[in-house]
């Protein structure tokens, strides 16, 4: 409880550090904030070309929205994923990058990883706004889903925060963490149904049947991945325009809470020794 109070007391600092990132990021560029759209757009073009045009992957049309645009379907999963992976990457390095600050000034250290969640979240919000506009133009009726979408974004942010907190501490102890994790994130992305629909996994899984004579299927194992659920929830809301499956929603809430609690506990335990380890 005392810890939460301390973090709450640092909210202005958190806001200022977040602003530092947001404002500093695209200073002295001509296109400014528009640059934050460049990466997702480039990824969209590449993945659409490779997976839709060449591999002919065809996700089901949105139900009930009736949408059938691969690029939009892709973005509904890709944007949450890039947010997640950026938060992990930057949050993990936040203590090292700000070593000078940690060694010279006392403040609640948790604001450092949190400030990256804030600044990356800000970019994400911008991307999602553009996506919502694109979906509406394509004929989906997304507007009523915006409040739920925002809530889900917060839940994903909480999940990412917890993971980033754990990894930021691990990274101070073992600098290998960041290199290891960036590889892991690439693998993780392809283990999540972002560029291909999960029905392809389900087909394979049915063919293989129960693993090792049990009735656990490949699909069950595949679905342990929390990001699979997050992506699926985002698609149900934005692409299909229907209520997300309550089970899915409950699962992501639980993942988020567990991740945050563990993350904060780990972070708090090692916070005091950080300055001399850096």
């Amino acid at each position: 409880m005392g810890y939460l109070k301390e973090v709450f007391a640092s909210r202005e600092l958190l806001a200022n550090l977040t602003l530092r990132e947001v404002r500093g990021q695209y200073k002295r560029t001509i296109f400014g904030q528009l640059w934050s759209l460049a990466n997702p757009l480039a990824a969209m073009v590449v993945y659409t070309f490779v997976f839709s045009f060449i591999f002919r992957i065809q996700p089901d049309a949105g139900d009930p929205s009736g949408l059938n645009v691969f690029a939009l379907w892709l973005l509904c999963g890709l944007l949450p994923w890039t947010f997640f992976s950026n938060v992990i990457n930057s949050g993990m390095g936040s203590l090292l990058i700000n070593a000078g600050l940690v060694q010279k000034v006392y403040f609640s250290r948790i604001v450092l990883p949190l400030s990256y969640v804030g600044s990356i979240g800000f970019n994400w919000l911008f991307e999602m706004a553009v996506l919502v506009i694109a979906l509406s133009i394509a004929g989906a009726f997304v507007l009523p889903w915006i409040p739920l979408m925002l809530l889900t974004m917060v839940i994903l942010a909480i999940f990412a925060t917890g993971v980033a907190l754990m990894l930021s501490v691990a990274n101070v102890h073992f600098r290998d963490t960041q290199y290891f994790v960036s590889i892991l994130l690439q693998i993780w992305m392809y283990l999540t149904p972002i560029v291909y629909p999960i029905k392809l996994v389900a087909t394979q899984s049915d063919e293989i049947g129960g693993l090792f004579g049990s009735n656990i299927t490949l699909l069950d194992v595949y679905q342990i991945n929390p990001m699979e659920r997050f992506v699926s929830v985002f698609r149900q809301m934005l692409y299909d325009n229907r209520w997300p499956d309550p089970n899915d929603y409950l699962t992501i809430v639980i993942w988020a809470l567990v991740s945050l609690v563990v993350g904060v506990l780990v972070f708090r335990r090692s916070e005091k020794g950080l300055a001399e380890l850096l």
């Binding site: 530092r20 404002r23 500093g24 200073k27 600050l101 060694q103 000034v105 006392y106």
Partner: peptide, 17 residues
């Protein structure tokens, strides 16, 4: 504590910010 001056200054931001 003033252990190092200007720790946390962001070089691209103005003095005011």
């Amino acid at each position: 504590a003033l252990l190092e001056v200007g720790s946390g200054f962001h070089p691209e931001l103005s003095g005011r910010e």
